[in-house]
C-alpha cells in the first residue's frame, strides 16, 4: 500500500501536490526544494514484481530514498514519484518493459523527507524461461548537463498534460 505523505517527516518548507498513480489512485505528496546529490560510485538497485511492487532494495536505495527497507518492500515503486515528472515518461517506461525491452531515462525521484534526487535509470525485464517475472531497476549518477536538459523538457510535458486534462 502507499499512503499520503506525512508533514512530520518533511524537512524544511514544503508545497503540497496530488499525483495520480496508475492503478492506485491519488496520493498527496509534500515536496521541498532540497536536492540531495547522488553519491559517487553507487548504484541504486531495486526489483519489483510484474505489477511494480518492490520485492528487493539495496542499501543505497534505502539511504537515498529516506525510507526503511521495511517501508519499501511491498510498496509500489511509484512511492518515489515526484510531481515534477510527466506521466508520459512512466507510460513510456511501462510500455517498453512490458514488451520485454530495456528502458533508460533521467528521473527526478521524491524522498520521504520531501527532498529529491536525480538519477539515470535503466529498467530491465527479468525474463526467466521465456517469461517476464519482474523488473530490475538500476539507477546511477547522471551527467548534470543531461539533467539540466530534462528540467525544462519535463516541465513543458507536464504543462501539456495538465492542459490536456482540463
Amino acid at each position: 500500500m502507499i499512503s499520503d505523505m506525512n508533514p512530520e517527516g518533511i524537512v524544511g518548507e514544503y508545497s503540497e501536490s496530488i499525483i495520480q498513480l496508475y492503478e492506485i489512485g491519488p496520493r498527496k505528496v509534500l515536496v521541498t526544494n532540497n536536492e540531495v546529490p547522488y553519491p559517487d560510485g553507487r548504484l541504486i538497485v531495486s526489483r519489483t514484481d510484474t505489477k511494480g511492487i518492490i520485492t528487493h532494495v539495496n542499501r543505497s536505495f534505502v539511504e537515498m530514498s529516506g525510507y526503511s527497507e521495511e517501508e519499501l518492500v511491498g510498496a509500489p515503486h511509484s512511492i518515489l514519484r515526484h510531481p515534477d515528472m510527466p506521466r508520459a515518461a512512466f507510460k513510456d517506461l511501462w510500455d517498453t518493459i512490458t514488451e520485454g525491452r530495456i528502458w533508460q531515462g533521467y528521473v527526478k525521484n521524491l524522498r520521504k523527507d520531501g527532498g529529491f534526487y536525480w538519477v539515470k535509470a535503466t529498467v530491465i525485464p527479468n525474463i526467466r524461461k521465456g517469461r517476464i517475472v519482474g523488473y530490475t531497476s538500476v539507477r546511477r549518477k547522471p551527467d548534470r548537463r543531461r539533467v539540466e536538459e530534462c528540467i525544462p523538457l519535463y516541465a513543458s510535458m507536464k504543462k501539456k498534460e495538465q492542459e490536456g486534462s482540463q
Partner: peptide, 9 residues
C-alpha cells in the same frame, strides 16, 4: 546478469 545488462545498455 540483468544488472550487468543495464550497465552495458
Amino acid at each position: 546478469i540483468d544488472l550487468m545488462e543495464t550497465l552495458t545498455y
